[in-house]
């Protein structure tokens, strides 16, 4: 079955406490190459077929329900390879 992938990230200007906690854990492991971590969400929407209308509906859904525009950005809506 084809899959549409929606990716949502917390807005760049907002503090991401979960990402910060992971970044701190990396620091404790002595991993010096990774200076920051941000955690977002990936939704996999299974569809019968991918059409322009279905993709448009997925984009609408991404803005309406899957993300909250006050705190998050939809970074991509695409068909999985």
């Amino acid at each position: 079955m084809p899959t549409i992938v929606v990716e949502v990230m917390p807005k760049a200007e907002l503090l991401d406490p979960a990402g910060k906690a992971v970044a701190t854990a990396l620091g404790k492991q002595g991993r010096s190459h990774f200076s920051g971590v941000r955690i977002g969400k990936r939704f996999e929407l299974t569809v019968d077929e991918v059409t322009d209308a279905v993709l448009a509906e997925a984009r609408e859904l991404a803005d309406d329900l899957l993300s909250n525009g006050v705190i998050e950005d939809v970074v991509s809506v695409r068909v999985a390879e």
Binding site: P10, L14, L15, P17, A18, K20, A21, N68, V70, I71
Partner: peptide
């Protein structure tokens, strides 16, 4: 807030 009856958003406490 999620119903848009009040504005803004609520996120994880800054100290985690």
């Amino acid at each position: 807030v999620e119903s848009h009856l009040l504005p803004g958003g609520l996120i994880r406490n800054d100290h985690g």
